[in-house]
Simulated assay, not measured.
Amino acid sequence: MEKITNLKDLLIEQIRELYNAEKQQQHALPKLKEKAEARELKLAIQYHLAETADHITRLEKVFQQLEVASFGEESEAMQKLIKEGYDLVERSSDPEVLDASIIAAMQYMEHFEMAGYGTACTYANELGLREIAEQLHFTLDEEKKIDEKLTEMAIAKINQKAKSPVIV
Rank of each mutant, 00 (worst) to 15 (best):
M1E: 13
E2G: 02
E2A: 12
E2Y: 12
K3S: 13
T5C: 03
L11E: 07
L11V: 07
L11F: 05
I12K: 00
E13P: 00
E17W: 11
K23P: 05
Q26T: 06
Q26P: 00
H27T: 12
L29M: 12
P30C: 05
K33S: 09
E34V: 02
K35F: 05
A36N: 01
L41S: 03
Q46V: 03
L49M: 05
A50P: 00
E51I: 03
D54R: 13
L59D: 07
E60N: 02
K61C: 01
F63S: 00
F63I: 04
Q65H: 12
L66H: 10
E67Q: 13
E67T: 10
V68P: 00
A69S: 06
E76R: 14
A77N: 10
M78S: 00
K80Q: 14
G85W: 12
G85R: 05
Y86I: 12
Y86L: 12
D87E: 07
D87N: 09
V89I: 15
V89T: 06
E90A: 13
P95M: 08
V97N: 01
V97C: 05
L98I: 10
D99A: 08
D99F: 04
A100P: 00
I103P: 00
A105V: 02
Q107P: 03
Q107T: 02
M109W: 10
H111I: 04
E113Q: 07
Y117M: 02
T122V: 01
Y123I: 02
Y123W: 02
A124R: 09
A124P: 08
N125T: 10
G128N: 03
L129S: 05
L129Q: 06
I132V: 14
T139G: 01
T139N: 08
L140H: 11
E142N: 09
E143L: 00
K145A: 14
I146N: 00
I146T: 10
E148F: 06
A154N: 10
K163I: 08
S164K: 14
I167E: 11
